[in-house]
Amino acid sequence: KTVHVDGVEYRFNNPEEADKFVKRLVKEKNGNVEVRGDTYHVE
């Protein structure tokens, strides 16, 4: 899984860790998540 945040790319081998990371980011930023294939885009 890959997570894109503000143009920075984070790669996770463990999908659960990627999910936790995304949830935390969305809370912090009050942002939205767009999923494209295996990539999460957080804005």
Rank of each mutant, 00 (worst) to 15 (best):
V26C: 15
V26M: 14
K20R: 13
V22E: 03
V33H: 03
E34F: 14
G7C: 10
D6F: 08
G31P: 08
V3D: 00
E34W: 14
E9F: 11
N13K: 10
V35D: 03
A18F: 07
Y10N: 00
E17C: 14
H4L: 14
T39R: 07
F12C: 09
E9K: 05
N30Q: 09
G7A: 02
G7F: 01
Y40D: 06
R36I: 13
D19M: 13
R24H: 08
A18R: 05
F21Y: 02
K29G: 12
T39C: 14
K23A: 14
V42C: 07
L25R: 02
D19G: 03
V33E: 06
T39E: 11
N13T: 11
G7V: 02
K20L: 13
K27C: 15
V5Y: 11
Y10M: 02
P15M: 09
F21D: 02
V5P: 00
R11V: 08
V3L: 04
V5W: 11
E16M: 05
D19V: 11
N32T: 13
H4E: 08
G37C: 14
N13L: 10
D38T: 05
L25V: 05
P15H: 08
E34Y: 14
D38M: 05
D19L: 15
V26E: 08
N14E: 03
N30P: 05
Y40G: 05
E17I: 01
E16D: 10
E28G: 07
H41R: 06
V35S: 06
K23M: 12
D19N: 05
H41W: 15
V22R: 11
T39Y: 08
R11Y: 13
F12V: 01
T2L: 07
T39A: 10
H41A: 09
H41C: 15
K23L: 12
N30T: 05
D38C: 13
R11G: 01
V33C: 15
Y40T: 09
T39N: 08
L25Y: 08
E34S: 12
P15C: 08
E17T: 03
E34H: 11
E9W: 13
E9T: 11
F21V: 01
K27E: 11
L25E: 03
E34A: 10
N13V: 07
V33M: 06
F12P: 00
H4C: 15
R11Q: 04
N32P: 04
V35W: 11
V3G: 00
F12I: 02
D19T: 06
R36E: 08
V22Q: 03
N32R: 14
V22N: 04
N32M: 13
G37H: 08
K27H: 08
P15S: 13
K29W: 15
N32G: 06
K20D: 14
R24Q: 11
G37I: 12
K20H: 10
N30G: 14
Y40E: 06
A18L: 08
K29P: 04
Y10I: 03
G31Y: 15
V35R: 05
R11L: 04
N32W: 15
T2R: 05
E43I: 14
A18G: 01
K27I: 10
G31K: 07
D6I: 01
Y40K: 07
V8W: 04
Y10G: 00
R36T: 07
F21T: 00
T2V: 13
D38I: 05
V26F: 12
P15G: 07
H4Q: 09
P15E: 13
E34D: 07
V26L: 14
T2Q: 03
H41K: 09
H41V: 12
E16R: 04
R24E: 10
V22D: 02
N14K: 02
Y40A: 07
G7H: 02
D6L: 03
E43C: 15
G37L: 09
E34P: 04
A18S: 01
D38E: 08
T2Y: 07
R11I: 08
K27Q: 13
V33S: 06
E34R: 10
A18Q: 02
L25W: 07
N14C: 13
V26N: 07
N32I: 14
V35G: 04
F21R: 00
N30H: 09
F21P: 00
R36Q: 08
V5E: 01
D38Y: 05
R24W: 14
T39S: 12
N13F: 06
V42H: 06
G37R: 06
K1N: 08
V33T: 04
E16Q: 06
E17Q: 03
H4Y: 15
P15A: 13
K1T: 14
E34M: 13
E17P: 00
F12D: 00
G31Q: 07
K29Q: 10
E28K: 07
D19Q: 10
E16V: 04
Y10R: 00
K27F: 11
A18Y: 11
D6R: 04
K29C: 15
L25G: 02
R36S: 10
H41I: 14
E9I: 14
N30E: 07
R11T: 07
E9S: 07
H4I: 15
F21L: 02
T2G: 01
A18H: 02
E43Y: 15
G31C: 15
V35L: 10
V33W: 10
V26I: 13
G31L: 11
H4V: 15
K23F: 03
F21I: 01
N32C: 15
R11C: 12
R36Y: 11
Y10H: 01
N14R: 02
V33L: 10
E17A: 04
V35H: 04
E9V: 14
D19S: 05
N14V: 03
D38N: 11
E28M: 10
D38K: 06
K1G: 03
G7Q: 01
P15D: 10
R36H: 09
V35E: 05
E9D: 03
N13A: 12
F12Q: 00
V22W: 09
V42T: 08
N14F: 03
R24V: 04
K1I: 15
E28V: 06
V8G: 00
R36K: 10
L25K: 04
N30R: 08
D6Q: 03
F12E: 00
N14Y: 02
K23V: 07
F12N: 01
K20S: 13
N32V: 13
K1Y: 15
